[in-house]
């Protein structure tokens, strides 16, 4: 029932996320649903990994398992060498949702302060981190605005700043630009890439857009549904300082083609 997945050889770099034979089954009234089935995956420090696949393939579920928002029912997973729960309790990662999920009753700076308040940081430390991260996402000057006074793209940038303010080494992003229009999306993709280059964080990025995955990633994990499993893992060797123009190159198109083929093969057209 499962495809033989490509096992990532242990690289010289330290592995941040190590997943072995991971499975997750939801019990529903209509019987069990196999959201994830026998996943093996290793993500090294500094990588930008995209999880791509059709809806229902478990890419978001996998991200939520890494974040300890769901619990696996089989197999092992470690984040930073410890269990996802311990990693979460140590605030080891920043999570960016499909929507900005900013609290409408807080101004932008108070929204970014939210995780810092929960961590119990001093006011001074909070303020310096707010300023730094707002600058990182180019939102300086919007501190005192309320979220609903900003555009969708700006809101999502603020939510990225909020995730970064925790100062995690790992950034988990769940289709963060899915609801934005193409032009804003391109712009934010470019900014995200620069941010990644600047901060050298490990990023796990869920998307259903092939160009987005190819443009951003150093590694693409193609997933397929029913049951959710890893179909293919593709290394992209695009230069680190790439711009949007890279999308016109044959190398880009070749990787995109391979991703598309993987998606097609993994997709059962039974519905």
């Amino acid at each position: 029932m499962t495809e033989p997945s490509l096992k990532e050889p242990d690289s010289s770099e330290k592995s941040v996320i190590q997943i072995d034979d991971l499975s997750l089954t939801f019990e529903t009234n209509d019987g069990p649903v196999h959201a994830l089935s026998h996943i093996d995956l290793s993500i090294a420090e500094g990588e930008f990994v995209s999880l791509i696949g059709p809806s229902g393939c478990g890419k978001t579920t996998l991200l939520r398992v890494i974040a300890d928002l769901e619990r696996a029912t089989g197999g092992t997973i470690s984040v930073n060498g410890v269990s996802p729960e311990e990693a979460r309790l140590h605030r080891a990662y920043g999570y960016v949702f499909q929507a900005a999920a900013l609290y409408p009753w807080r101004t932008i700076d108070r929204n970014i302060a939210l995780p810092l308040e929960i961590m119990g940081l001093s006011k001074k430390e909070q303020n310096s981190r707010i300023a730094k991260n707002l600058d990182l996402v180019n939102l300086t000057g919007f501190e005192k605005k309320f979220p609903w006074q900003l555009s969708g793209g700006m809101q999502q940038r603020a939510s990225i700043a909020r995730a970064l303010a925790v100062e995690p080494h790992l950034l988990l992003m769940d289709e963060p630009f899915g609801a934005l229009d193409e032009i804003v999306r391109d712009h934010l993709n470019e900014q995200l890439l620069k941010l990644w280059a600047k901060t050298n964080k490990t990023v796990v990025f869920v998307t259903h857009s092939i160009p987005e995955a190819v443009f951003l990633s150093s590694k693409i994990v193609v997933m397929s549904p029913r049951p959710g499993r890893v179909h293919d893992v593709i290394d992209c060797g695009l230069p680190r300082d790439r711009t949007l123009d890279v999308r016109e190159t044959p190398q880009f198109l070749e990787i995109a083609h391979r991703v598309r083929e993987g998606l097609k093969a993994g997709h059962s057209y039974d519905d």
Partner: peptide, 9 residues
């Protein structure tokens, strides 16, 4: 929003 609070432990 609740998941967000959970990620902050």
């Amino acid at each position: 929003e609740k998941d967000l609070m959970r990620t902050y432990a």
